[in-house]
């Protein structure tokens, strides 16, 4: 494999709270256009890790660099995010939800655009909606959409800003399995098309293997049975996986059954 430029460099990151250690000694180099899936038991710091990348939580020790710059310590437009829930704005229609990101950048005081500029933005937003097959629901409110449509909207809303890094926190966790595979196809298409680097938390191990190009497993290396919070979790496995490989063969090799997180 040709050596690419490192985009994200995470060096010896720790996260402690008063009474517990969540993450310890997390180090990771991520190259451009990697699709990283993250699995692990609940409460082992996956979400904390993602929130650090988002800039919402700061590491206690260590550093996170993006393109050799220290990570901006608050959420910003270079990192898009889709959560499991509450990712779209209930008071805006589908179109307005996608439009919002464009208008916020164009108009710093009103957060709204008018006239020709608005028409231009509407056009861009509509293209994005078409891309996720929501163009016919443009005038609906999110509460009128199904869970899967809401997540597609959340993706469109984020991707219209062309972020370099896309952070996904169990985005399909609440969807039924049939729908989930449709979403996988869409996500992979967008991933290739838009030149993204993706971090995605999932509790579905099969999804972790099939979707990403690299799988991270978060777990605790040391456990004190009397004080489970004494040690933090770290990356215990860092596996190259690939959607070009057949999932079944990987599963056989690993001796893991799908859906056994």
């Amino acid at each position: 494999m040709v050596r690419c430029v490192v985009v994200i460099e995470i060096r010896n990151v720790w996260k402690r709270y008063v009474d517990k250690i969540v993450l310890e000694k997390v180090s990771l180099n991520v190259e451009k256009n990697e699709f990283i899936t993250i699995v692990g038991a609940s409460g082992c710091g996956k979400t904390t890790f993602l929130r650090m990348l988002l800039g919402e939580v700061q590491p206690c020790e260590g550093s996170i660099m993006i393109d050799a710059d220290r990570l901006i310590p608050e959420p910003s437009a270079d990192r898009g995010v889709v959560f499991q829930r509450y990712s779209v704005f209930p008071h805006l229609t589908v179109l307005e939800n996608v439009l919002l990101g464009l208008e916020l950048t164009d108009s710093r005081w009103l957060g709204r655009t008018f006239g020709r500029r608005r028409a231009h933005n509407v056009e861009r937003a509509s293209e994005m909606l078409e891309r996720v097959s929501l163009d016919r629901a443009a005038d609906n409110y999110p509460s009128e959409l199904s869970g899967g449509m809401q997540q597609r909207l959340a993706l469109a809303q984020t991707l219209v800003k062309a972020p370099r890094i896309l952070l996904l926190d169990e985005p399909f966790g609440a969807l039924d399995p049939g729908y989930r595979s449709d979403m996988h196809v869409l996500l992979l298409d967008l991933f290739r098309e838009l030149d993204l680097t993706v971090f995605m938390i999932t509790h579905d191990i099969a999804e972790g293997f099939s979707l990403g190009s690299r799988l991270l497993v978060f777990d605790k290396l040391r456990v004190d049975p009397h004080n489970p919070d004494l040690y933090g979790a770290t990356i215990t496995f860092d596996l190259p996986v690939g959607h070009h490989r057949r999932l079944d063969s990987i599963m056989d090799n690993m001796n893991v059954k799908p859906n056994q997180a």
């Binding site: 995010v81 959560f83 829930r85 704005f89 919002l100 950048t105 809303q157 972020p163």
Partner: peptide, 11 residues
């Protein structure tokens, strides 16, 4: 999540 999302949209 909403407030974070808005910030990632450059708000």
């Amino acid at each position: 999540e909403q407030l974070i999302k808005a910030q990632t949209l450059d708000a």
